[in-house]
């Protein structure tokens, strides 16, 4: 699944989470990405859905992006994007 399409999706997810500077932590958990952000107001849910999220669960600074079984490969791409 990795490749240019994967990187574009990872970039879209990072942008929808408010950009790299807004992301404190992001880790995959089998079917979802668990992220912690500095400013939850900057999270763009419609953009996350447009990037392939099935659902977005928010609890304060913790944002869970449900993406299905590709979560691990998406997280790898996001690591590449975040450098």
């Amino acid at each position: 699944m990795r490749g240019h399409g994967g990187i574009r999706r990872a970039e879209a997810i990072v942008a929808a989470l408010g950009g790299a500077a807004n992301i404190v932590d992001i880790e995959p958990c089998t079917t979802r990405l668990r992220s912690e952000v500095r400013d939850a107001a900057r999270v763009d849910e419609p953009a996350l859905r447009a990037a392939g999220a099935i659902a977005v669960l928010r609890s304060g600074p913790v944002v869970q992006v449900v993406v299905g079984p590709q979560a691990d490969s998406i997280a790898c791409d996001i690591e590449d994007v975040l450098g």
Binding site: T31, R32, I54, A55, L57, V66, P69
Partner: peptide, 9 residues
């Protein structure tokens, strides 16, 4: 857990 309970995946 809502992801499982609502059969999201």
């Amino acid at each position: 857990d809502p992801v499982f309970a609502q059969a999201m995946v």
